[in-house]
Amino acid sequence: MPIAMILASALVVQAPATNENVVEVAYPEMRAGRSAAAIDKIQHADARNADHPARLINLGIAYAREGNTDRARAMFEAAASTDRYRLETASGSWVDSRTLAREALAMLDRGAFDSPRFASR
């Protein structure tokens, strides 16, 4: 699998499935490329999970796709500095949340979220 495909799929994360509270990350909206709907859904979810890295990363991706790079950067930086979690990615891999946040920051710096190819995935 090409590296661009791995990164694109790796950055759409799901909260790990457990018996604990489920963290709303707007996974269906993110997969469908519906960034505005994802932002709305995440922002109106349970505030107790506001600093969960899966939520922050997906919110950052949605902001980046909408062209709001300042807010996207703030979300990725927050995710990179919060508690570590192992997150399940869209491709089924389990990855450290800080690693995903750093990859998202690097993609933002490269302008990778501006790519129509990425946004269409």
Rank of each mutant, 00 (worst) to 15 (best):
A37K: 13
Y85R: 11
Y27E: 07
R102P: 08
L108G: 00
A64D: 08
D83Y: 12
N49V: 08
G60A: 06
I61K: 01
Q43D: 13
S35T: 09
L59R: 05
A90E: 12
T82D: 10
A112C: 02
Q43L: 15
D46F: 09
R86S: 14
D83G: 12
V23E: 06
R71M: 11
L105P: 02
E77K: 01
P16G: 08
N49Q: 08
D51R: 11
I6P: 00
G33S: 12
M107P: 06
A38L: 06
A15H: 04
A112R: 01
I3S: 14
D96P: 04
A74E: 15
R121P: 02
Y27K: 05
V25M: 05
E29A: 14
D46E: 14
L59M: 13
A36S: 15
R31S: 13
R86P: 07
F76W: 05
P2G: 08
A10V: 01
D109Q: 15
R55Y: 15
N58K: 07
E77C: 03
G111S: 03
H52S: 03
H44R: 10
L87K: 06
H52D: 13
H44D: 14
G67H: 05
L59T: 08
V95R: 04
H44T: 13
N68L: 13
E29P: 13
A80C: 09
N68V: 09
T89H: 00
R86Q: 15
T18H: 03
A50N: 08
L100A: 01
A64N: 01
A78F: 06
P116E: 04
L59C: 09
A80I: 07
E77I: 03
I61A: 03
S81L: 10
I42H: 07
I57A: 02
D83C: 09
I57M: 05
Y27A: 08
S120I: 05
A37F: 05
S93N: 07
T18L: 12
I3L: 10
M75H: 07
A4C: 11
